[in-house]
Simulated assay, not measured.
Amino acid sequence: MNAEYLDLRLQRCPMALLLAKRAAMQLAIDQSLTILSHDLVSIRDMAGFFSQPPFTVKLNTDANVTTLYVTKRNTL
């Protein structure tokens, strides 16, 4: 399993969501993407998008930075 990293702390929605979607679509099955963000609107939108198949998402907030751990799963 490979891991990818995306720092979106300088981006705001809708660009943050667009960049996150673009990176996530390139993931292979069971590959993970770690996303950093501190924009609350972007975090909410990304968490909503990645909570739908084929993705799973976990969030961790620490000192004004939220880390989203996105994994692409097999939907079959």
Results as ranks from 00 to 15, higher is better:
residue 71 T to Q: 10
residue 67 T to S: 15
residue 45 D to K: 09
residue 32 S to H: 01
residue 30 D to W: 03
residue 39 D to S: 11
residue 26 Q to N: 15
residue 22 R to F: 09
residue 49 F to S: 02
residue 25 M to L: 10
residue 66 T to V: 14
residue 43 I to E: 15
residue 18 L to R: 15
residue 40 L to S: 14
residue 21 K to F: 02
residue 42 S to P: 14
residue 46 M to A: 01
residue 29 I to W: 00
residue 65 V to R: 06
residue 47 A to F: 00
residue 30 D to F: 08
residue 65 V to F: 02
residue 59 L to C: 13
residue 26 Q to I: 01
residue 22 R to N: 11
residue 66 T to C: 15
residue 62 D to Q: 14
residue 24 A to T: 00
residue 63 A to T: 05
residue 21 K to G: 01
residue 23 A to I: 06
residue 45 D to A: 04
residue 18 L to Q: 15
residue 64 N to Y: 04
residue 29 I to H: 03
residue 69 Y to I: 08
residue 32 S to G: 06
residue 14 P to T: 01
residue 52 Q to H: 05
residue 57 V to I: 15
residue 41 V to Y: 13
residue 29 I to C: 04
residue 30 D to V: 04
residue 31 Q to Y: 02
residue 29 I to P: 04
residue 11 Q to P: 00
residue 10 L to F: 00
residue 62 D to R: 14
residue 18 L to E: 14
residue 50 F to S: 09
residue 26 Q to C: 07
residue 52 Q to W: 00
residue 41 V to M: 15
residue 25 M to F: 06
residue 32 S to E: 03
residue 72 K to Q: 12
residue 15 M to N: 14
residue 28 A to V: 09
residue 50 F to K: 07
residue 38 H to P: 02
residue 55 F to R: 01
residue 39 D to V: 05
residue 30 D to N: 15
residue 19 L to N: 06
residue 62 D to E: 11
residue 28 A to T: 09
residue 29 I to V: 06
residue 34 T to S: 14
residue 16 A to I: 05
residue 69 Y to P: 00
residue 13 C to S: 12
residue 36 L to I: 02
residue 13 C to G: 09
residue 14 P to F: 00
residue 55 F to C: 03
residue 23 A to E: 10
residue 63 A to W: 02
residue 52 Q to S: 02
residue 36 L to C: 11
residue 54 P to W: 06
residue 62 D to A: 08
residue 38 H to M: 08
residue 11 Q to V: 01
residue 32 S to M: 00
residue 10 L to A: 03
residue 28 A to N: 13
residue 72 K to C: 04
residue 51 S to M: 13
residue 54 P to L: 07
residue 50 F to W: 13
residue 16 A to S: 15
residue 21 K to E: 03
residue 27 L to S: 11
residue 15 M to T: 14
residue 61 T to S: 15
residue 22 R to T: 14
residue 60 N to W: 05
residue 20 A to W: 06
residue 65 V to C: 08
residue 19 L to G: 03
residue 63 A to V: 03
residue 41 V to G: 13
residue 49 F to A: 09
residue 13 C to D: 10
residue 21 K to C: 03
residue 53 P to Q: 12
residue 28 A to M: 12
residue 31 Q to S: 05
residue 36 L to F: 11
residue 33 L to Y: 00
residue 34 T to N: 10
residue 41 V to D: 15
residue 43 I to M: 07
residue 28 A to S: 11
residue 72 K to S: 04
residue 49 F to Q: 12
residue 66 T to Q: 14
residue 71 T to S: 12
residue 43 I to T: 11
residue 13 C to T: 12
residue 40 L to V: 14
residue 68 L to V: 08
residue 35 I to Q: 03
residue 65 V to E: 08
residue 13 C to L: 08
residue 27 L to N: 09
residue 28 A to G: 11
residue 45 D to G: 00
residue 46 M to L: 04
residue 54 P to R: 07
residue 25 M to D: 10
residue 70 V to Y: 03
residue 23 A to T: 09
residue 21 K to N: 12
residue 63 A to N: 12
